[in-house]
């Protein structure tokens, strides 16, 4: 048995650690993916129903009376925003509920006592969140295609914005779950921060409709940049600069990712 272990005081070779970390990452990613697929009635069906209602009510019924927006039919205009709304809420909710559930049931300790690095724990949960975000995004896109056409102006921008946004909000979900002490705490950020920012982030309207002051206020909303970058990928038009949107998303991912790793290393909310 002893030949599997490093000699006293010796470090394990880097190759051994990397191989073990890769196996650990696959394990968490598979476990997280399996979790949201196993409970698909709770994770994949509700956003499909909600978003269908958005398309029917705002797109088909009210949208026809609103007329074109930004040079597109209202249905075409809101479709990218509604897809993005689904991706943001689902990637966030997937991670926050799974990570907090693990904390609440204390099986997070399985990860904490194992030798896997914190980066692997974070990445594993993010893979789960991004996976659910992409699944829900794909479902909502199929529903959108029943109501309107989505020309896809630029595939690379469309897909990269989806992945970056889902990554960012998955990391946000981890941070929320680390701080949460009860189930109420995992609903506060989605209800009081994410939902208002998303609805005011240009999902249903162009900020050019707003008075100058509120346009300036809207530009401080990071979700506006993600929604518009995605809309640019699909329709080819946006209210904001696309390069700046990418810079902001990447900066947020690095900043929040670094903060999440710091919290995991300190053991905030996880170790006594």
């Amino acid at each position: 048995m002893s030949d599997r272990f490093a000699a006293e005081g010796q470090r394990y070779p880097r190759s051994v650690r990397l191989r073990a970390s890769w196996v650990a990452l696959k394990t968490i990613a598979f476990k997280e993916t399996n979790r949201y697929l196993r409970i698909w009635i709770q994770t994949l069906v509700p956003p499909a129903i909600t978003m269908t209602l958005y398309f029917v009510i705002f797109g088909a019924l009210i949208g026809e009376r609103i007329g074109p927006m930004g040079g597109y039919s209202y249905m075409e205009y809101i479709a990218p925003g509604i897809i993005m709304l689904a991706i943001i809420t689902n990637s966030y909710n997937n991670v926050v509920s799974s990570f907090f559930g693990a904390k609440f049931q204390r099986h997070i300790e399985e990860l904490l006592v194992s030798p896997m690095p914190n980066l692997v724990i974070l990445t594993g949960y993010v893979v789960g969140g991004v996976g659910r975000g992409l699944c829900v995004g794909a479902i909502v896109t199929v529903i959108a295609l029943m109501f309107t056409s989505l020309p896809i102006h630029n595939w690379a921008i469309t897909l990269s914005v989806v992945v970056l946004t889902a990554t960012l909000f998955s990391i946000g979900g981890v941070i929320n779950a680390i701080y949460a002490q009860k189930f109420d705490d995992i609903a506060i950020i989605p209800t009081f921060v994410l939902t208002p920012l998303t609805y005011l982030g240009g999902v249903f309207y162009s900020i050019s409709l707003l008075p100058e002051f509120w346009q300036a206020v809207s530009l401080a909303n990071p979700i506006l940049y993600m929604v518009n970058a995605f809309r640019f990928g699909i329709l080819g038009s946006a209210d904001v600069n696309i390069v700046f949107s990418y810079v902001m998303m990447i900066a947020f991912i690095i900043g929040l990712g670094g903060f999440a790793l710091y919290l995991l290393r300190r053991g905030t909310g996880l170790r006594s």
Partner: peptide, 24 residues
């Protein structure tokens, strides 16, 4: 105290644990 995922099967719990330690 019991600290495994109460929604997982016995087999999933032990296999996942091995995975966390890098066991193929």
């Amino acid at each position: 105290e019991f600290n495994f995922n109460t929604f997982d099967t016995v087999e999933q719990i032990v296999l996942n644990q091995a995975g966390f330690y890098g066991i193929p």
